[in-house]
Design a protein around this nucleic acid. Structure first.
Length: 501
RNA sequence: GUCUCCAUCGUCUAGCGGUUAGGACAACGGGUUUUCAUCCCGUCAACAGCAGUUCGAUUCUGCUUGGAGAUGCCA
């Protein structure tokens, strides 16, 4: 039998790590077993629905390179794949359940339900949830209420006795007493929309879903769904409940732990291959050796039996590490393209023509490739190439343990050497060698020779490699900045001398 | 409160009765280096507890403890 799995998010917010992890596991399972991956939009909550969320769903999967075989946009034999377009189906099945005495109309108002909840809370009642007030309403009374125009919900008649068991590949058999199942959950809301339970069960059956891979938070409703399958006379699919993704405090991952939406990670400059790789590793592993996997690789080697049962903490630092690794794996051209939006956003590319931008970008990438953890880091690292940095003060121009006097002397000496080297067409290594040779002569450390140049050119004591930076910047600007710093140092020395004298 | 699930270094994990309990991230220390990084080397660090099964338990069983999730006209 062909494997058919689905990712069925509700477009009520941005795609987050947990959801994407579920999508990925389903997708990889489908691919590795030669099955179909189906996307279904569960937009039955019209109060929380947003177009933006739906678009974000598509954008996110697209960004990650996840293609669905059936679903919105691409269509398929079991459509429509958007639940709001399937209302008639759910209503028909719900009505059928009522007709067969397995579900019933409930006319309770939200006020009554609210009062009930408060009372149960206040009295610490052992029974929580709906009190089944309408479960045994007289048929004629039901008719009358219906005719009076009231909009009822349809609730499932959960058997009061017995227990229900379902099998989970990972967890084994899970059994719940029927009396412990939420009493008579709503299947069809008063607005005619189905709830998750109804729509989910009907669609999974109608769409021929063979395996349900979903988060463990759904385990408690497993028996409920089985009761529904039985009520319809259908065979439940195979269940596989995925371990949850937690925050550092062990609670379900949420915004207070940091970014959780894929959009955020993307904006900060995480690469899709890094996010995909890391997220797949939360709750799944291949062996004790390999942890770098491309999407294509995972499409081949992913197996359900390697999924872990225990919830996993999402480690932002390890994601960051993965990202750095993947950044270093990218080609310069690819990285230049990836980094471009960040520089543009910072306004650093304004006034430059396409050709210059392309050149600068390609020049800048080797400078930052080994330094980036996230793409957005690039802006501050290479700002000096595109904009004049604030003139560094004397302190910034002095290497650790060196005085302005020493650095003035060093820079006065180093500048002509550097200039001659650059203009004379020497290699970086040769120029560096010449500069290093000045240190013993001046009686300072090598760092003392380079730091004033570095700080002059980049405006900071921390920068990409000096000579390559200078070449990207251009000689003219380099010399201007050094001369400016020479003045700064002279002033500082003079001021100090004046004080001393 | 009730129900369900889970349990190896701080974190992600390997392990499927006999191992010096392995790897990765983080942390710490060192090396390379003109800064910062990268890279390399090393150190620290775990089987929650108690019974039982067994010649032998991290591994199997039970209990305890701890954690999480669910208990909506949200999914």
């Amino acid at each position: 039998m062909e494997v058919r799995v689905r990712y069925a998010p509700s477009p009520t917010g941005l795609q987050h790590i947990g959801g994407v992890r579920t999508a990925l596991f389903n997708y990889f399972f489908a691919r590795s077993s030669g099955g179909k991956f189906i996307l279904r939009v569960e937009d039955t909550d019209r109060t929380r629905y947003s177009d933006e969320s739906l678009q974000d769903l598509y954008d996110t999967l697209d960004w990650l390179g996840i293609k669905w075989d059936e679903g919105p946009v691409v269509g398929g034999p079991c459509g429509p794949y958007i639940q709001s377009e399937r209302l008639g189906i759910y209503q028909k099945y719900a009505k059928d359940l009522v007709d067969r005495g397995l579900a019933y109309y409930c006319f309770c108002t939200s006020e009554r339900l609210e009062a009930l909840r408060k009372e149960q809370e206040a009295t610490h009642s052992p029974h929580v949830g709906y009190d089944r007030h309408c479960r045994d309403l007289d048929p004629q009374e039901v008719r009358r209420l219906l005719d009076s125009g009231l909009k009822p919900v349809i609730r499932l008649k959960v058997p009061a006795e017995g227990s229900t068991t379902f099998h989970d590949i990972l967890m084994g058999d899970i059994t719940r007493e029927n009396s412990d199942i939420s009493p008579d959950p709503v299947l069809l809301k008063s607005d005619g929309f189905p709830t998750y339970h109804l729509a989910n069960v009907i669609d999974d059956h109608l769409m021929g879903i063979t395996h349900i891979l979903r988060a463990q938070e759904w385990i408690p409703s497993g028996p409920l769904h089985v009761i529904l399958y039985n009520a319809f006379g259908w065979t439940p699919p195979v269940y596989c409940h995925l371990p949850m993704v937690m925050g550092s405090d062990g609670q379900k991952l949420s915004k207070r732990h940091g970014s959780t939406s894929v959009r955020d990670f993307r904006a900060k400059g995480y690469l899709p291959e890094a996010l995909l790789n890391y997220v797949t590793l939360v709750g799944w592993s291949y062996d004790d050796k390999q942890e770098f996997f491309s999407r294509e690789e995972l499409e081949k080697v992913f197996t359900i039996d390697k999924i872990n049962k225990a919830p996993g903490v999402f480690d932002y630092r390890k994601l960051e590490w993965f990202n750095g690794q993947y950044i270093r794996q990218r080609s310069d051209a690819s990285l230049a393209e990836a980094v471009k939006p960040y520089l543009k956003e910072a306004g650093l590319l304004e006034g430059l023509d396409e050709k210059t931008v392309a050149e600068k970008l390609l020049g800048v990438v080797p400078l930052v490739k080994e330094r980036l953890k996230v793409l957005s880091d690039v802006t501050e690292m290479v700002r000096f190439v595109f904009a004049d940095p604030q003139a560094p003060d004397a302190k910034t121009l002095c290497a650790k343990g060196h005085t302005p006097q020493q650095e003035l002397a060093a820079l006065e000496r180093a500048y002509p050497v550097l200039r001659a080297g650059l203009e004379g067409g020497l290699e970086d290594a040769a120029i560096e060698e010449n500069l290093c040779a000045l240190a013993p002569e001046l009686g300072i450390k090598i760092n003392g020779v380079f730091m004033p140049i570095r700080a002059s050119v980049t405006g900071s004591q921390v920068s990409p490699p000096l000579l390559p930076s200078i070449r990207v910047l251009g000689f003219e600007k380099t010399f201007e900045r050094i001369e400016r710093s020479l003045d700064t140092l002279r002033e500082a020395v003079a001021a100090e001398g004046g004080q001393n004298g």
